[in-house]
Amino acid sequence: MTEALRTPASQQAVQERLPPELLPPGEGFVGILKRDLLLAFRHRGELANPLIFFIMVTALIPIAVGPQKALLSQLAPGMIWVMALLGTLLSSDSLFQSDYADGTLEQLIISPQPLWLLVLAKISAHWLVTGLPITLAAPILGLMLALPEAGYATLVLGLAMGTATFSLFGAIGAALTVALRKGGVLLSLIVMPLYFPVLIFGSAAVQRVVDGGSAGAPLALLGAVFAFALLLSPFATAASLRAGING
């Protein structure tokens, strides 16, 4: 496992060519992205955790509220969104955890590559292994919860942006709590308020389409929140990592 950490093929190739300060910033981004994806791929069990959580918990809803189709289809948009939120939130905790434990994080911080870009690479990898599977699995859950047919495209589109925003905001919380032993619960508390707008716009978009309206406005607002998070999060996360580790 440690072997995999030290010698991903891409990183080795990068190191052989040039000293890191001479590399264009994009190299660091690609290197981290490939490394994280490779790591995630080697730990397929962990990779599946958020997805399994998402599916299992959503399957509990009909058990709890009853199998009436009308009721389920009314609850479906909100429930799928809440479960996607929780699934991403649970996995955010581990975003920097192993890198912190083995010292890689310190290496990233002192590396001459811009930290926010490396952080963005880590967040992208995180989304690819948690948010994307959840997004792709959502239509199946929609079927199980009797989501009306009109809602699927909006659900997938919204979740794609929404889970990415969850990952971006989650990274800030993960960076702030990385050095703490019991960061998990605290992470939820820190990050949850930031999730409100995403949840509101995302579930409203699906609800509107199901009700026969147009999802344009909420989807556009969701996109705006996503763009905002994309601008804010890498810098805030990088600052948090510096503050949490150096201090």
Binding site: I172, L176, P193, L194, F201, L221, F228, A236, A239
Partner: peptide, 19 residues
Amino acid sequence: ILALVGTVNIPIIYKSVDW
């Protein structure tokens, strides 16, 4: 940092809740 992140998010949260 957390307080600043919260500050820039407060208007967005408020507007979204309003909406």
